[in-house]
Each structure stands twice: as structure tokens, then as C-alpha cells.
């Protein structure tokens, strides 16, 4: 079953999270991918690394800019989509499923409540 954006929670900084059984799968939104235009490189976190909600966990380079990626939740990185670095075009075609970036074992699932719903996120993007 494919993932649809209304199942996700979003940061204002355009990262998304999908929570299941205490694990949050994290990626960047289609809007962010469109803003980035030509993607060149992505620096990913390491398995075992601790990430903090609202803090930088990696960087993405597009043709003329380096942009940070911010974690929607706090916890320990338990899986990283390493193959994505060589297949960044996946982010264009399937940012919400095949384009996932990392999985985090959440230390505080309540942090999800601070994130935006799909509807609110769309409003933010429409107004930015």
C-alpha cells in the first residue's frame, strides 16, 4: 500500500515523518525537492547517531546551494537509506516512500504532535 502525504507529519523546514511502532521514517517533501531543483549530493547521518528534533541531521546540495535537513523528532538513527545518495532522482518521483532518508527510534513520540498536518503544511507552502 503506497503512502500518501495526508498520513505524514511535516516540519516547517519541509521534512516529513511517518511514525509506526515507535519508529519514525523521515524524508523531505515534494515541495522541498522542487525548491532544490537539481540535486547533486546528500550527506546522510550514521546508524547509531542521536538526532534532536529541530536540529540538523544532514545536508543536501543542489546545483547552487547547500541546505541543511532538520530532524522532525529526537531519537537514535536505526536505519539510513544509503543507496539514495546515488539515486537522488528517486526524490523527484517518490519522495514519500522510496525517497525516505532515515529511520529514527523516537525518544519522545509526543514530539510528533508539534509537527504540521498535511493540510497545514500545504497552507504554509502556498503562503511562502
Amino acid at each position: 500500500m503506497s503512502i500518501t502525504p495526508d498520513q505524514l507529519r511535516f516540519c516547517e523546514s519541509h521534512e516529513w515523518a511517518l511514525a509506526q511502532d515507535g519508529i519514525a521514517t523521515i524524508g523531505i517533501s515534494a515541495f522541498a525537492v522542487a525548491e532544490l531543483t537539481d540535486l547533486v549530493f546528500m550527506a546522510l547521518p550514521k546508524v547509531g547517531q542521536t538526532v534532536v528534533a529541530g536540529k540538523e541531521f544532514g545536508e543536501v546540495e543542489s546545483v547552487k546551494a547547500v541546505s541543511p535537513m532538520y530532524s522532525p523528532v529526537s531519537g537514535e538513527v536505526v536505519e539510513v537509506h544509503d543507496a539514495l545518495v546515488n539515486q537522488l532522482e528517486i526524490l523527484n518521483s517518490d519522495p514519500y516512500e522510496a525517497g525516505w532518508i532515515m529511520k529514527v527510534k523516537m525518544s519522545d513520540p509526543n514530539e510528533l504532535n508539534k509537527l504540521l498536518s498535511w493540510t497545514d503544511y500545504q497552507s504554509q507552502c502556498g503562503g511562502s
Binding site: 516547517e12 523531505i28 525548491e35 543542489s62 546545483v63 546551494a65 541546505s67 511562502s128
Partner: peptide, 14 residues
């Protein structure tokens, strides 16, 4: 802060 939350290059500035 509004620039910080964006992704990618700032086309207008370029």
C-alpha cells in the same frame, strides 16, 4: 528565519 526554513537556492538574490 524565513530564509533558514527554505531549501535550495535563493533565485532572486542570485
Amino acid at each position: 528565519s524565513s530564509l533558514a526554513s527554505k531549501k535550495g537556492h535563493h533565485e532572486k538574490l542570485y
